[in-house]
């Protein structure tokens, strides 16, 4: 187990290193001069010089990377450059936004599991029936709906037509404000997990130990809950965990639709003001959360299922 943990930790550190380099290089891979991109080509030369200095672009590439790492090491992630009179550290901006996004992603995960598990289990227990067909069609629909469409439709239906839930910027209890956004963000994952639950449970039900449990004369409900589900849900929960990072990233669209001041909106703000530091900071924080969540899920999975540890070492 210790060997597995060390190996997994090693590959995560490698991913963190790779992600950091990638985020640093973002500014340089993009065609055109970053300062021209930000200010426009006809900008005042003095502004250009000041911005170049603020972004460290007047130094050699190696020195820029050194400054980038130093900003990570001192925990500020650098300062904003779009408003030279009121510079703020990127970390303070992210600190305000992160809880909003994390709450939204958690709520979306709850919504996804609440829809996916009953839907997938019901379908798997009645394979080939009308119920199965309806559940399959529903999850295919969820998988095919464009998320940027779903949010506005939800708002139109449940805020304008039938005002059941508060809209963007309304003064309302936090929980009520969370309902529509978390449905918007969670639907795609719900559809994905429902399909997985169905196929995973269908596979497990064919296993010998389930037949044995049935042959012993156990109630069908007991066989499903105590014997089949326990094993069928392990891969589903794993995927749900891994997808948590994607929810953090997907929050960009949801936060735009519902005007929630989270990481996604901060990222879009940074893009609108062409402030690379904000874009790099948000990207880095989301990507690192993603790596961290993946690591935790894998470690937990390894702890629960010894086969994973052994496969990893093979």
């Amino acid at each position: 187990m210790i060997g597995f943990m060390l190996r997994r930790l090693g590959s995560s550190l490698l991913a963190v290193g790779g992600v950091s380099v990638l985020v640093f290089l973002l500014v340089h891979v993009i065609p055109g001069d970053p300062v021209d991109n930000m200010l426009g080509e006809g900008a005042d030369p003095r502004d250009k010089v000041a911005l170049r200095a603020c972004l460290d672009l007047d130094r050699p590439l190696a020195a820029q990377f050194g400054r980038f790492l130093a900003h990570i090491a001192d925990g500020t992630l650098g300062q904003t450059c779009h408003d030279p009179l009121h510079p703020r550290t990127i970390v303070s901006l992210i600190g305000e936004a992160f809880p909003e996004t994390a709450t939204l992603a958690l709520a979306a995960m709850v919504v996804a599991l609440l829809f996916a598990l009953p839907l997938g289990i019901t379908a798997a227990l009645h394979p080939g029936t009308l119920v199965d067909g309806a559940a399959t069609a529903l999850s295919l629909a969820g998988l095919s709906l464009p998320t940027p469409w779903l949010g506005p439709l939800l708002l139109f239906a449940f805020y304008i037509k039938w005002p059941l839930f508060p809209g963007p910027g309304d003064d309302a209890p936090a929980l009520a404000r969370l309902v529509l956004p978390s449905i918007m963000l969670g639907t795609h994952l719900a559809a994905m997990l429902a399909r997985m639950t169905r196929s995973s449970l269908l596979e497990v039900v064919r296993e010998d130990y389930v037949r044995t449990a049935r042959a012993k004369g156990l109630q069908p409900l007991v066989v499903v809950t105590r014997h089949a589900l326990r094993n069928a849900l392990v891969p589903v929960i794993t995927v749900a965990g891994i997808q948590f990072g994607s929810l953090l990233a997907g929050a960009v669209v949801t936060e735009k639709v519902f005007a929630r001041p989270g990481l996604g909106l901060l990222l879009l703000d940074g893009i609108a003001q062409r402030d690379y530091r904000i874009v790099q900071g948000c990207t880095l924080v989301i990507a690192l959360s993603y790596v961290l969540v993946n690591l935790l899920v894998d470690l937990a999975y390894g702890a629960v299922d010894p086969r994973i540890r052994n496969r990893a070492s093979a």
Binding site: A15, N37, S246, L267, I271, A287
Partner: peptide, 30 residues
């Protein structure tokens, strides 16, 4: 495969957003 791991460690849509957004007028090729 390590290169793949690093790219997979990045939520896909985020990389797409960052790569497109920072260009002033992204064309179809971009």
């Amino acid at each position: 495969m390590r290169l793949c791991d690093i790219l997979l460690a990045f939520p896909g849509i985020l990389l797409n957003i960052a790569l497109v957004a920072l260009v002033r007028r992204p064309g179809i090729a971009h």
